[in-house]
Design a protein around this nucleic acid. Structure first.
Length: 464
DNA sequence: TCGTCTAACACTTTTGAAAAGT
DNA sequence: AACTTTTCAAAAGTGTTAGACG
């Protein structure tokens, strides 16, 4: 993950989007290049690594627009509207694979635990995608944005707004570890974001800017340059007791910090909204999580960690030492093989159809489709090389953006991402029709998008 | 006092390396 | 010798709980 605003605070808060640099490597037809714009409502500060250079005139990041009215409390909401999507990738469709599970949680009021060390989402966002160019390469991104400007409180039976929201935290985007990969790769099997973690710590070690020095780009997809700086958080920072909406973005680009891009599509699924908590408030959510999450198996009715067993253990403890556990607690009933980077996340053992694919179904052990993986970078940074040479130098003393209410330090580090050159292997997508100004303002999805060509698939499989 | 957060805990699942088998 | 399968231990992911904090 890469976040110029956090990387280059010394350059000020202005957010400049420049036209393609003279001499930049783009043979895109000028008319097409001019047609590239950003979608309204994408958090461009988070995505500018991938999307900048799209507009032809420099402009400054404006203040966010007024927040929409508060929604009704969770659990009392009407059925969620159709998923919404923004497209400059015509024909691309995303469907939520585990939609039934999400709906089940949403009907109760989904809560997600956030911890200092980071907690995975359950259910995870698992989607299947169609309509990609099998040959072209894409990045899959996930971010989480506030739904409204309220803080919530559990009132015994339901969530109710309780005061103003905390100031927004540093924006982060999680890059799917397979990115960039070909359309064929993404379409081959569902794409799971089960590895993403949610944290309430702005100092978490998994999101720090990580300087990386190395030789020039050797085609690993990090762009060109003699030095590279990369920001690849596996954790997204949230406030507790706030309502959030995950979003998934597809960016057509050959490299993570590509100088070229071929369009973007952004999706959200209303049933995936959740309230972040540090401890579960709604007991029904706890029950659902225990029932659906394999890791919580021990807390099920017949589990060793269920309430009855725990109480009994406490009593035994008071009387004397506990007998040693036997082999009866092996992992013989574990779901199928280990998950690969795209599958897994929320599997119910009783549904073999949802079991993760066996290991051989996983993409190649090396970076799939010849591309690097953001996660792999975190683990083995030396394996990657290069970054856009026009990136300014990182301020080494940059602290994490404080939760002060001020905008996070924001750089003018605009990456000139230009539409893919003709004949470059990833032809340009058609320019989107129209764009709202608040696209640049980092706001939650404010508009009901008609969703033409958007997510239509409602035939997701039942989870169990 | 109350609401929220944190760390420790016991348990399960996942992962990866070593050993064993073909 | 090369490859596949099995085994096992460590790491990571769960919800619970008690206590700290403001």
């Amino acid at each position: 993950m890469y976040h110029p605003r956090e990387l280059y605070p010394s350059l000020g808060s202005g957010y400049r989007l420049g036209p393609p640099q003279p001499g930049a490597d783009s043979s895109f037809p000028p008319a097409l290049a001019e047609g590239y714009h950003r979608y309204p409502d994408l958090d461009t500060p988070k995505l500018d690594c991938f999307l900048s250079g799209i507009e032809t005139a420099p402009r400054t990041l404006a203040a966010p627009p007024p927040l929409p009215p508060l929604p009704p409390a969770l659990g009392t909401e009407p059925p969620p509207p159709a998923p919404e999507a923004l497209h400059s990738l015509p024909g691309v469709n995303l469907s939520l694979e585990n939609r039934e599970l999400w709906k089940e949680f949403n009907s109760v009021g989904t809560e997600m635990i956030i911890t200092k060390a980071g907690r995975r989402m359950f259910p995870a966002c698992r989607v299947s995608v169609t309509g990609l160019d099998p040959e072209a390469r894409y990045l899959f991104l996930l971010d989480v944005v506030p739904v409204d400007g309220a803080r919530y409180r559990w009132q015994g039976r339901r969530w109710e707004p309780s005061g103003k929201a905390e100031p927004r935290l540093p924006d982060r985007v999680y890059i799917h570890p397979d990115s960039p990969a070909t359309g064929a790769h993404w379409m081959r099997q569902p794409v799971s974001f089960h590895r993403v973690k949610l944290t309430n710590s702005t100092l978490d070690p998994h999101g720090h800017v990580r300087p990386r020095l190395g030789p020039r780009d050797e085609g690993w997809g990090w762009g060109q340059g003699e030095e590279s700086l990369l920001f690849l958080p596996s954790q997204l920072i949230l406030h507790s007791m706030h309502k959030y909406q995950p979003r998934i973005h597809l960016v057509r680009a050959a490299q993570l910090c590509s100088q070229h891009w071929g369009g973007v599509a952004s999706f959200r699924f209303p049933e995936t909204t959740f309230i972040s908590v540090t401890a579960y408030q709604n007991p029904r959510i706890t029950q659902l999580k225990i029932a659906a999450n394999p890791f919580a198996k021990g807390f099920r009715e017949n589990g060793r960690n269920c309430k009855r067993e725990r109480d009994a253990r406490v009593k035994r403890k008071l009387r004397g030492p506990e007998p040693v556990a036997t082999a009866a607690y092996g992992s013989g009933d574990a779901p199928g093989g280990p998950c690969d980077s795209t599958l897994g996340g929320d599997v119910r053992e009783s549904d073999p159809e949802q079991a993760p694919a066996p290991r051989e179904a996983a993409p190649a052990q090396a970076p799939p489709c010849g591309g690097p993986s953001a996660e792999a970078y975190l683990l083995h940074p030396a394996a990657f090389h290069g970054a856009p040479s026009h990136l300014p130098t990182r301020n080494p003393s940059f602290p994490e953006a404080p939760d002060s209410g001020r905008p996070a330090p924001y750089s003018a580090a605009f990456l000139e991402l230009q539409p893919g050159p003709a004949g470059s292997g990833y032809p340009a997508a058609a320019p989107p029709a129209s764009f709202a100004s608040h696209f640049l303002q980092g706001s939650p999805f404010p508009l009901p998008y008609p969703g033409a060509g958007a997510y239509l698939d409602v035939g997701s499989k039942p989870m169990y």
